[in-house]
Design a protein around this nucleic acid. Structure first.
Length: 268
DNA sequence: GACAGTGTTTAATT
DNA sequence: CAATTAAACACTGT
């Protein structure tokens, strides 16, 4: 369930699973997961998805490239644009529930794309067309690129969720980054001085670095994903619990239709 | 049964 | 024009 660190982990695992391999089999289990255009909704599955998918993976798989939450996975001259949506996941081994696409490799391994809510998708395209699709409408990558000076009257948390401002942050990590920076989620971007902006950039970097560090380079079970795994976040789904920094109760409210968790004691 | 949920797009509204 | 809200997508878990 992916924001930038989870998508980056997905990128690394796909690269590791397929380096030096070829795809020998493709199974399109649910045609709704393959789209003709990036912005298409699940109800508009690609009319010729299976054939287009097969044509792409006939090439030699290369390392996927990430920008924000999108991945471009080149296979020679063709490529797949991947988005995980809310519940998309690539796994290896046993076929998971809600598997939408299966790939068989020449080492016998099976790779699966599963996505119960169908908010993710796969767009078969060419490398040439995929490159602009990877970046279209997105601001600088929150991890690789210099953090932008955010402007506007909007609440800073809402601006952080706007992928055209900065690409890769989602509801969870945006809230945690603001907590790290000690900034109130409803402050407007224009209201932040240079010092607060620098703190925000540092908070985002620290948040992403921390979560990327949890994954490391090896195959790991991810936190919230495993049912019953402990929640490692100080704020996420912890309304009413004490803030680990100031001890005050964590609060939550709604912004732009999403739940914002925050600490009234240490976010000004 | 009701509702929230690590996402994105489009339309409607203020 | 800037910004917000609602709805849609489809399904699981509480």
């Amino acid at each position: 369930m992916p924001e930038l660190p989870e998508v980056e982990f997905c990128r690394r695992t796909l690269e590791r699973w397929t380096r030096g391999r070829r795809v020998t089999g493709v199974e399109l289990i649910d045609p709704r997961s393959v789209r003709a255009r990036r912005e298409d909704r699940p109800s508009a599955g690609h009319p010729d998805g299976a054939a287009r998918l097969r044509a792409v993976v006939a090439g030699v798989p290369e390392a996927p490239i990430r920008h924000g939450k999108r991945l471009l996975w080149p296979f020679g001259a063709r490529a797949l644009l991947l988005h995980l949506g809310m519940t998309g996941k690539w796994s290896r081994g046993e076929r998971p529930p809600h598997a939408k696409v299966g790939l068989t490799l020449d080492d016998g391994a099976a790779l699966w794309f599963s996505d119960p809510r169908l908010l993710g998708g796969i767009v078969p395209t060419t490398r040439a067309e995929g490159e602009p699709m990877l970046h279209e409408g997105l601001g600088p990558d929150a991890w690789h690129d210099p953090f932008p000076r955010i402007r506007g009257r909007r609440a800073i948390k809402v601006a952080l969720l706007d992928q055209s401002v900065v690409a890769g942050l989602g509801n969870l990590h945006a809230a945690e980054a603001l907590w790290r920076a000690g900034i109130h989620p409803e402050r407007s971007a224009d209201d932040l001085d240079d010092r607060a902006h620098a703190g925000l950039a540092a908070g985002v970097r620290a948040q992403l670095e921390t979560v990327l560090g949890w994954f490391g380079d090896e195959e790991h079970i991810t936190y919230v994903e495993e049912r019953g795994a402990p929640n490692p976040f100080p704020l996420y789904q912890r309304g009413g619990e004490p803030c680990p920094r100031c001890g005050g109760p964590i609060g939550k409210f709604t912004q732009a239709g999403r739940t914002t968790w925050w600490c009234p004691g240490c976010q000004r």
